[in-house]
Structure formats: structure tokens, C-alpha cells
Design a protein around this nucleic acid. Structure first.
Lengths: 195, 195
DNA sequence: ATCCTACGTCAACAACCGTTGACTCTCGGG
DNA sequence: CCCGAGAGTCAACGGTTGTTGACGTAGGAT
């Protein structure tokens, strides 16, 4: 058992290095996508040997999995006023994306790396968004899935055009302009009757 | 001038090979993106040596440029009934995407290859879509750009979720369901008053 | 002071990439 | 028949990638 105080949380010297690697990995994955980012480049940013990355994270794929794990921090939809749902969601996510580009990295990678990260995006959106919206539709899972899918269609479209492709007309829009224009779309997908 | 009949169009034996390479390149770029697709793989699909690809197309980038050129074949918007514009556009593009995945390849590449092909996507959407829609708004270019941007946001979102990420709820939708749900969104972005 | 463990470095591996130049084969025109 | 040009092959190059194992080293518990 070799006790050494037996504290369950034991500050290891390597924790700082691990964190530095993870930070560097996030930046590189955001900037260059999964294929483009290299272990060597990440290691250089963290001022460390590439072998350390392998030692602590096992493989590039596992490193990405940890660097790209993400929580959308979606609010509890049932507490929001039902008629302003679309607006609220749009504003919440826009705030998130403007300050944190992790999601952009995920999207980049999901598009370029096929199955590896596409599955992860599916987890986030089908998981977090779907289960979050599920409460709104009670037990009708089919309906919830369909409407959540449409919502995701519009939301990810904004991310793609604004942050990845950087289409000028979309980049030029003010955040509140986007909320005003796109919010009603989300609202309609959520609450409007079948067309 | 070394005449040899001097016919302007002269069937060369290599034309078939060139076409085979281009076909294989399209498929590979669609399936694996720019970085993922390899000259060796493309050459194998075309049943020839990788060196032939270089001989005929010069470089991987030039090959991609030829393989990924694309025309959306947008209809003349001014001839469509104004109140069914969104529906028409959505149906037109959906038909296109269901049968031809070149656009998906472009999107993949634009994301993984950063500036090289992102510029190409901007050309297509800011060019073809913007100038197509420009006729609807007369001389107000600012307005046309903003509305076209919003439209592209929704349209590319559908492409992304349905064909690239393959989110189950979006894949399961019938084309006409998408037209019925998303068409009105496009319509609103085009014709509704400022929010 | 000493030892053991964890931290970190270094050099190399095997695989794969785009690209190149020299080579052979195949034809069609003189 | 010849022969030269185009079609196609082959092997190799220089470079980069993820990954590995052997090697040194610092630091805290004993």
C-alpha cells in the first residue's frame, strides 16, 4: 500500500504540465483542426517534449477527446418564458461562441476528420440540446428530435458561416442583430404548429 | 508549325485517363476532404501511377481547383412568384445536394484547408447567391448582402447537419418536410421587414 | 545522505505524404 | 520499316507525422 499520507487528491508536479499541454492543444486544434494540428507543434507551445504528450494522454485522438470535451451550459428551458425561447437560446449561445472558440474547433474537426469528432458533435447536440429541449415536449420524443434537429440546423449554420467560413455579410452582423433575425426562426421551429 | 492536320480539337489518348483521374479525385475529396485525400489514393482509384496525376495536373492544389469547381445553377429569382421564393430555393438546392455531393466536398475542404478553399466557398455563396438575390433588392446592396447572409446561414446549416455531420434527426427528415419547415425561414429572411 | 519514483529529454522508428527524374512501352505518321 | 513523341511505370528523394523506448534527472520520503 505504500501509504505516503494516502490523501485522495495529491498535487502532482505534472499537473501544471498537463494543463499547459491541454491549453496548447485547444489553441492548436481551434486554429488548425484535427489533421492540421501536430503533436510536435502542441508540445512546442507548451515548452515541452512531444513525448510528454504521449506519456500523459496516450495518443493524439485521446488528447483531442479531452481538449474538445465541452459543456454548452444550456439553461433550463422550462424556466424561460415560452414565447421568448428562441431569442433566449440564440442570445445565450452567441455569448458563448463570441468568447470561447472551442466549439469552432470541434466543428472544424468534425468536418475534416469524419467519424472521429463527428460522433462527438452528435453527442453534444443530440445529447445536450436534445435532452434540454426534451423537457419542453413532454414524452413525445419523435417530435422533440425533429424540432431540435431543425433548431440545430439553424444554430450550427450561424457558427459555420460566422466563425469558420467567415462570410463577410454574416461576420458584419451585430450579435443583437443575429438574435433579432434568427431568434424568431428558432422560436418557430420550437413552438409553431406542423406546417 | 509541324502541322499534323492542325485540327483544333484533337482526341488525345490521355483524355480518358485525365477524366478518370478527375472523377476519382472528386470522390476522394468528397469522402476525405483536401488533407485526407491523397494523390496515391486517387491514382489507385483511377488505376494509374501517382506520377500521372502530377504530369497532367501539376500539383494536388491544382487538381483540387479543377475537381471542385462548381455551379449552383441557381434559377432567375425574378421569375419566381415572390411569395414562394423561400420554398422554391430550398427545394431547388435540396434536389441538387441529394444527387451531387460536390458541394459537401467543398465545404469539407473549406474547413480543413483554411484559406485555400474557404475563399472558394465565399466566391460561390457571396458570388452566385448574392448576385442572384441582388436583383430582388434593386440597388440596395447592403440590404441584399445582409439578407443573403442570413439565408446562407440557414441553407449551409442544413447541408452541414444533413450531409456532413449526419445528425440523425436531420437525416431522417424527408426532403419535402425540410422544404415545408425551412422554406418559410428563407422566405422570411428575404421578404420580411426589419425586426 | 540515500534511494525510489515520477518528470522530462533525446534520438530514432516506421509509415506516409507530395513530388521528381529516369526509364520502358506503345503507336501512328513518314 | 523506322522512329520519335506521347502514355505510362518505377524507384527514389526529402520531409513530416504519430509513436516508442532508452536514457538522464530532480525531489521528497525515509
Amino acid at each position: 500500500m505504500t501509504a505516503t499520507e494516502e490523501t485522495p487528491v495529491r498535487r502532482r508536479r505534472s499537473d501544471a504540465t498537463k494543463a499547459a499541454i491541454l491549453d496548447a492543444a485547444r489553441e492548436r486544434f481551434i486554429a488548425e483542426g484535427y489533421e492540421g494540428a501536430t503533436i510536435r507543434g502542441i508540445a512546442a507551445d507548451a515548452h515541452i517534449d512531444p513525448a510528454m504528450v504521449m506519456r500523459y494522454f496516450g495518443s493524439k485522438e485521446k488528447l483531442f477527446a479531452l481538449a474538445a470535451s465541452y459543456d454548452l451550459h444550456l439553461p433550463d428551458f422550462t424556466t424561460l418564458p415560452r414565447e421568448r425561447l428562441g431569442e433566449s437560446i440564440m442570445r445565450h449561445l452567441l455569448n458563448l461562441w463570441e468568447s470561447d472558440r472551442t466549439l469552432v474547433a470541434l466543428l472544424r474537426t468534425a468536418v475534416s476528420n469524419e467519424e472521429a469528432a463527428a460522433e462527438r458533435v452528435r453527442e453534444i447536440w443530440s445529447g445536450q440540446v436534445l435532452t434540454g429541449l426534451g423537457k419542453l415536449f413532454g414524452d413525445d420524443r419523435e417530435l422533440a428530435a425533429r424540432r431540435a434537429g431543425l433548431v440545430v440546423t439553424q444554430l450550427l449554420g450561424v457558427v459555420l458561416c460566422r466563425y469558420v467560413l467567415r462570410l463577410p455579410p454574416v461576420v458584419d452582423l451585430e450579435p443583437e442583430e443575429i438574435v433579432a433575425w434568427v431568434g424568431p426562426t428558432v422560436q418557430r421551429y420550437l413552438t409553431a404548429g406542423e406546417p
